[in-house]
């Protein structure tokens, strides 16, 4: 068996591109036994390396009414816990889809989703900005998506190659 960590990375790479690939298909691609691949996938599901399997959706195709925004947050770190405590208070709100601690002019970057723009305004004004240790917020509503998770959302360019070439 290849080095286990290396093999796990290879499996994750395949599943990150297409989570519908079966253990048997992955085993052929990596020249491994199906049992080995199944075992490693189960291990990664159990230890939460793999959190979920889901589709990357082009929301513009389904005319979703949901609104998303990116919110930059500046906040004060707390002794002993740094930004972890305030981050925890923020990520528990279901509106927060993603939360990152980042370097630069602000501290936390949130991706927030709401049914309407009004919902998000309410969340920012009533919930987020009023938290202790939050010093300021800057909210940017998403207007159009061009690329999502590595996928270009406009209809793809046509195959340019000839059908048969030497």
């Amino acid at each position: 068996m290849k080095d286990e960590l290396h093999l796990k990375r290879e499996i994750l790479e395949i599943l990150s591109v297409d989570c519908t690939k079966t253990a048997s298909e992955i085993a052929v691609m990596l020249n491994q036994s199906e049992e080995t691949v199944s075992l490693l996938i189960r291990q990664m599901e159990k230890d939460k390396t793999i959190l979920a399997y889901r589709a990357v959706v082009n929301r513009q195709k389904v005319e979703s009414t949901k609104t998303q925004c990116i919110i930059e947050v500046t906040c004060s770190p707390q002794r002993g816990v740094g930004f972890d405590a305030i981050a925890q208070r923020i990520y528990k709100f279901p509106e927060v889809r993603s939360l990152f601690l980042i370097s630069g002019g602000f501290d936390l970057l949130l991706i927030v989703e709401g049914e309407t723009m009004k919902d998000i305004c309410f969340f920012v004004a009533e919930k987020l900005a009023t938290l202790d240790h939050v010093k300021g917020t800057s909210t940017h509503f998403l207007l159009k998506r061009y690329k999502e998770d590595g996928f270009i959302l406009e209809d793809g360019e046509k195959e340019q190659r000839l059908a048969i070439t030497p």
Partner: peptide, 17 residues
């Protein structure tokens, strides 16, 4: 190539690039 050209819904494993 002349045979394939113009055919619809062909899966080509004939492309050398």
């Amino acid at each position: 190539f002349e045979l394939v050209i113009g055919m619809e819904d062909v899966i080509s494993l004939g492309v050398g690039e």
